[in-house]
Amino acid sequence: MNLTMRTLVGGLIIAAATVGAWWAWLGWETGYTVDPETGATSGPYAPWQVAGCVLTLALIAAVGGWLLSPWVVAPVMTVAFTVAWAAHAASTDGTGLWAVGAALVLVGTAAGATVVSVGARLIRRRTGRSAG
């Protein structure tokens, strides 16, 4: 498989895995929790859901950075996760604050995917292993 085809297929797999991570950990959650004693509202995500999603995304970025260029991995993951998150948030938020959340998700996903995929690429180079 030539480099262009490998990059295209790899990018599509990274995008699908990223959207799959969003769906598996966060996409199904729509409710907020209200503490009956204090009246405090939390949610819609539990801390374990966010932690699981972040760890899954880190794994995707690491494998992607090992096999593909981080300059493919980071933008693909950023766009895929932000679009999935924002589409859901926009459909369930009547305040319009989803746009602020989407901006924060974009920045966080870009930073995390870049750091992890570049780190994986640097480790691969240091160990002298090829992507296959």
Rank of each mutant, 00 (worst) to 15 (best):
G20I: 06
I14R: 00
N2R: 10
A110P: 08
M77G: 07
L106G: 03
A99G: 08
S130M: 11
Y45M: 08
R124F: 07
P47N: 03
W28K: 08
G64R: 00
A74R: 03
V73D: 07
S42G: 10
A90N: 09
A111H: 07
L3E: 15
V72K: 01
V83I: 14
A89V: 07
Y45A: 06
L55A: 14
A99T: 14
A84Y: 04
D35Y: 07
A21S: 14
S91T: 10
A113K: 00
Y32V: 09
V100H: 05
E37D: 14
V72Q: 04
G64H: 05
L59H: 04
G132W: 14
A61K: 00
N2K: 10
A21V: 05
W98N: 00
E37C: 01
V118H: 01
G108M: 09
P75Y: 09
R6C: 04
T82H: 05
M1W: 12
L106I: 05
F81T: 01
V73L: 08
R124N: 06
G27A: 09
V118A: 03
G101L: 04
A90W: 11
A103V: 15
V50C: 05
A90T: 05
R125Y: 03
G10C: 05
W98R: 01
M5H: 10
A74Q: 09
L68W: 09
T18V: 05
A17F: 14
L104I: 13
I60K: 00
G31H: 13
A131G: 07
G11A: 08
M1L: 12
T30P: 00
T18H: 05
T82W: 07
T56C: 14
A87L: 15
A46W: 10
V63R: 01
A21E: 04
F81V: 00
V50N: 02
V73P: 01
T92G: 06
A61G: 06
A61V: 08
R6F: 10
V107N: 03
G10Y: 04
A99W: 13
L3R: 15
Q49V: 06
V105W: 02
V118S: 04
S69E: 09
L104E: 13
G39K: 00
V19I: 15
G10R: 00
T30V: 11
S130C: 06
V72N: 03
A90M: 13
A40Y: 12
A131W: 11
A74S: 15
R121Y: 03
W85D: 13
L106K: 02
W98Q: 01
V79W: 03
L59Q: 05
T78F: 06
T109P: 02
E37N: 10
T33L: 12
G31C: 02
H88L: 12
G65T: 07
T18L: 07
W23A: 14
G94W: 06
T33F: 11
M1G: 15
G39A: 06
R129V: 12
G96E: 11
